[in-house]
């Protein structure tokens, strides 16, 4: 048995308690085997710093981002309204999520549906916790001196203007951060957004994730840091296609912290 404590909002409510923050897990974080590791890593961190969080568990549904961006407003409204109803029922004030797409939809699109919450992405929360001294990174950790490159997700970067928080988190790991040629506002998409994740590519000469993985590999970084479960899949596949999966790892920020602190 691990000492992990993960409660649902329903369990908290039954205990008569209110969670400090709701952890919005998302579909990828819940079902994708690779993204699940990030979900667990973030839970570990929240436990360690003593934040009383809860998840919605089976009461959580897809935010509707891919349906909306594919053009299917009906499906979006169905799932989004359901979520807003659930969140309002629990009187949720603050939400953290490890998925930039969930982050964007809840933060920017749910208000029009009657859902107003303070929403932070886990990279922002982690930076805040580090700044406050609540999250301490072990010195001389696993990543000291290693070359890391950071891939900006479109929905945190260009769409929501968050470029520095994830980089600050990485700086705390004593590694050498190397930027790709296209970074920050110019960062190249991994190819998954706009519901591309759920369909075959249109005809072209190359897959977008291959192009991006090549760029990341050019930096000679040993680790590609991401902050989005879809970027994670895309970059992982890209690295594999280049047969570099034994030399170059793709990690989320939360995992890097957990590995660094050997939690």
């Amino acid at each position: 048995m691990s000492d992990l404590k993960i409660k649902t909002m329903a369990e908290m409510a039954a205990e008569g308690k209110q969670a400090e923050i709701l952890f919005w897990v998302g579909c990828a974080g819940s079902f994708d085997a690779r993204a699940q590791k990030v979900t667990v890593a973030l839970c570990k961190i929240l436990n360690k710093v003593g934040i009383e969080f809860a998840i919605l568990g089976s009461e959580e549904s897809c935010t509707g981002d891919p349906a909306r961006r594919a053009g299917n407003e009906f499906v979006f409204q169905m799932t989004a309204l359901q979520n807003v109803m659930t969140l309002n029922m629990y009187e949720v004030k603050k939400i953290v999520t490890a998925c930039p797409h969930c982050f964007n939809t809840i933060k920017n699109e749910y208000p029009a549906l009657g859902g107003e919450y303070e929403v932070v992405h886990h990279s922002q929360l982690l930076q805040e916790l580090i700044d406050q001294g609540r999250l301490k990174l072990t010195e001389g950790g696993a990543f000291e001196g290693k070359k890391i490159t950071y891939h900006d997700s479109c929905y945190m970067g260009r769409v929501n203007g968050v470029y520095e928080a994830p980089r600050k988190v990485l700086e705390g790991l004593d590694n050498e951060l190397v930027e790709m040629k296209r970074c920050r506002t110019k960062g190249l998409c991994c190819g998954a957004g706009g519901a591309q994740m759920f369909k075959e590519d249109e005809p072209g000469d190359k897959r977008i994730n291959i192009d991006r993985a090549e760029e990341a590999l050019e930096t000679k970084a040993e680790i590609i840091a991401v902050n989005c479960p879809f970027c994670m899949t895309m970059m992982g596949d890209g690295v594999k296609a280049k047969e570099k999966q034994d030399d170059v790892m793709v990690y989320d920020l939360a995992e890097l912290i957990v590995n660094n602190n050997k939690w």
Binding site: L4, C27, A28, S58, C62
Partner: peptide, 18 residues
């Protein structure tokens, strides 16, 4: 309520991890 139809509960990961 999920982008993929999965045969497991949405919070199965939490049960497994704990």
């Amino acid at each position: 309520g999920a982008v993929w139809s999965m045969p497991v509960d949405r919070d199965q990961w939490a049960k497994d991890a704990m």
